[in-house]
């Protein structure tokens, strides 16, 4: 179980304080896996870092029962000048007893299937190879909750199939908090969704509902997110709206607009896949 209360995080950048999110409170029960949604830069990775305990919040508390993995992602956690084997030895020396270290490394080596690259410096790896090693390493240990930050989206078809399989197997006694822009993967493993938008977190009890909202917010960021919550904490929209009658005739103009955008996005995705 993870219980978060009044979590606020900001960064100090060039003399300005930038708030990532403010006053987040939520509870994740045992047996619930969460898809963390939101546009790029919404604070998903920051939230994972806070949950994983490798960054500290300005205010607020996080209570955890059980063990939580480090945020498994493509960046961080690996020393570029060392090989995968050396990096893994480092982590295994901390997280397992001395006699298990070699078994764990063997497990990750077999899982990653990156051949001789396993003994080359980590900085020479492609993002696919990185994700194989990073994901394999986290799966070598039994955590109650895994924090997975877009690590499966960089791999090829074979790796994705493998990771899907292993996640499903782990799902029996572990939970996930996943960030992934490949929404299909989320659908397989998660049963709830949290959507981060403009410093707020919206909870959805059904994943598909969350994904719908997430998609529409991507196309129209100024859209109100408050309709699920009480209207009093609605913020004035940061982006000036182009629709003067928005209050009177809601949704009509934006919908027409966004359906066009959807078709554009779709075609570009198809192109991207063929490359």
């Amino acid at each position: 179980m993870i219980e978060v209360n009044g979590l606020t995080k900001s960064y100090f950048h060039k003399g300005k304080r930038v708030t990532v999110f403010k006053d987040l409170s939520f509870k994740i029960n045992r047996g619930e896996s969460i898809a963390l949604l939101g546009r790029n830069g919404a604070g998903k990775s920051t939230l994972l870092r806070l949950l994983g305990g490798i960054d500290l919040p300005d205010r607020g508390t996080i209570r955890r029962n059980g063990s939580i993995s480090w945020p498994v992602g493509l960046t961080g956690g690996f020393q570029g000048s060392l090989s995968a084997r050396e990096n893994l030895t480092f982590v295994c020396k901390i997280y397992s007893s001395a006699d298990e270290v070699q078994d764990k490394i063997k497990y990750v080596e077999d899982f990653a299937e990156i051949g001789e690259y396993f003994d080359r410096p980590f900085k020479t790896y492609s993002s696919g190879m990185r994700s194989r090693v990073a994901f394999g390493l986290s799966m070598a240990f039994d955590f109650d909750v895994y924090l997975i930050d877009e690590v499966t989206s960089a791999g090829d078809e074979r790796f994705r199939a493998k990771s899907r399989e292993i996640l499903q197997e782990r799902h029996r006694n572990a939970d996930f908090i996943m960030v992934d822009h490949n929404l299909l993967g989320l659908k397989l493993h998660c049963n709830r969704a949290f959507l981060l938008h403009q410093g707020k977190l919206i909870e959805f009890d059904s994943l598909s509902e969350g994904i719908e909202k997430h998609k529409s917010l991507l196309l129209n960021p100024s859209e109100s997110v408050a309709d699920r919550k009480s209207t009093q904490d609605r913020q004035p929209s940061a982006i000036p709206t182009q629709h003067p009658h928005r209050g009177a005739t809601p949704r009509v103009a934006p919908l027409a607009n966004s359906s066009q955008q959807i078709s554009k996005v779709k075609t570009s995705q198809v192109k991207g896949d063929k490359k």
Partner: peptide, 19 residues
């Protein structure tokens, strides 16, 4: 498997919560 210990984040102790 799950431990009953819990940890308040603000005290950066190195006791529980990472397996």
């Amino acid at each position: 498997m799950p431990s009953v210990e819990s940890e308040a984040e603000n005290s950066a102790r190195r006791t529980t919560g990472y397996g």
